[in-house]
């Protein structure tokens, strides 16, 4: 068992794809680095913190982007974003079985300000274009820094999110919420609260993650292999149905202050034990209880 959480972007790709099938685009030796960081005298990464390329997953051709959390928390700068957008646009030409986004990011790289913001919005537009072409875009989220900021939105635009319980997904990160709303609203140092709110298990129960896996690269690979070649429809009725689902969810739980109360209301037995369960037991205990997710029949 090899931990996804502790692995680097390159280790994740190596473990995810069929052996020796990955071909990187814009390799580190090409030295495509951030002009903004250079300007600021900040350290650069030769891949600008994201690895992109193509390879095979269980024999099927896929395009892959993997963010490196160890470089600036996986933050999206201009070059970093352009690499992901470019990869998504290439999918329109190559028509792979899926685009896999191995995300680990705090969101926009603040050093790059508007260039970073624009980069994230370009990624979102490209995701929707690829989906409209009926090529599935799949997010794998189980890294140290979670997936936050604009990339949290981008992840939610995709066909499916595979998460481990260690993974986190949100818009504002815990510290940002505490800073702006106060510690009474959200205590970012309460790790149990953070994970029970934005962690993989709650995201699965809320219908945001399609699958929950253990922190094991092999499990991410198996989950992704099931999701390739199966694009969800993307048209106006689908979008309206998704909006209705979100509205219904909001109304159903709007009086609740803690995730554990949601689990109880969904009829999950012993909700206080969910956080410690291993993923197999967790999936068994919550079977049929989770909120309806994207692509589930209405």
């Amino acid at each position: 068992m090899t931990s996804w959480y502790e692995a680097t972007a390159r280790q994740r790709i190596a473990g995810l794809l069929d052996p020796d099938t990955f071909a990187e685009i814009l390799r580190p030796e090409d030295r495509i680095t951030s002009p903004h960081l250079r300007e600021l005298g900040a350290p650069a990464a030769f891949d600008d913190g994201v690895v992109v390329g193509r390879g095979l997953l269980a024999g099927r051709p896929v395009l892959v982007a993997a963010q490196e959390g160890a470089f600036m928390g996986g933050a999206v700068g201009e070059v970093h974003g352009a690499k992901i957008t470019g990869l998504l646009e290439r999918a329109m030409d190559e028509r792979p079985a899926a685009v896999l986004l191995l995300l680990e990011t705090g969101g926009v790289r603040l050093h790059e300000a508007n260039a970073g913001l624009i980069a994230v919005s370009e990624i979102m537009r490209a995701i929707l274009a690829v989906r409209a072409a009926q090529i599935p875009v799949i997010v794998l989220n189980g890294g140290r820094y979670g997936v936050f900021g604009g990339m949290g939105i981008a992840a939610s635009l995709c066909d499916a999110i595979v998460m481990s319980e260690e993974g986190r997904l949100g818009l504002s990160g815990p510290e940002v919420i505490e800073t702006t709303m106060g510690v009474e609203e959200f205590d970012a140092s309460d790790r149990a609260l953070v994970w029970r709110t934005v962690g993989g298990k709650n995201r699965y129960i809320l219908g945001e993650a399609a699958t929950l896996v253990s922190d094991d690269i092999a499990e991410f690979r198996a989950a992704a292999a099931v999701l390739v070649d199966a694009a969800l429809p993307l048209d106006l009725p689908e979008v309206e149905a998704e909006h209705a689902m979100l509205r219904e969810r909001l109304e159903r739980f709007s009086d609740i202050g803690d995730a554990q109360e949601i689990w109880a209301r969904l009829g999950i037995a012993s909700p206080e034990t969910l956080p410690i369960l291993d993923s197999d037991t967790f999936l068994r205990v919550t079977e049929g209880k989770a909120v309806r997710r994207k692509g589930d029949a209405a």
Binding site: M1, T2, S3, E6, R191, A192, V194, W195, R196, G199, P275, I276, D278
Partner: peptide
Amino acid sequence: TRDLLAARSMKDLVRASGGLYDPPTRFRSW
């Protein structure tokens, strides 16, 4: 590598104990 560790997290220790070990809050993410 860390893959050699019999437990890589506090949660692994709890699971190894069959749920008997009950770590103090500051060591928990659950």
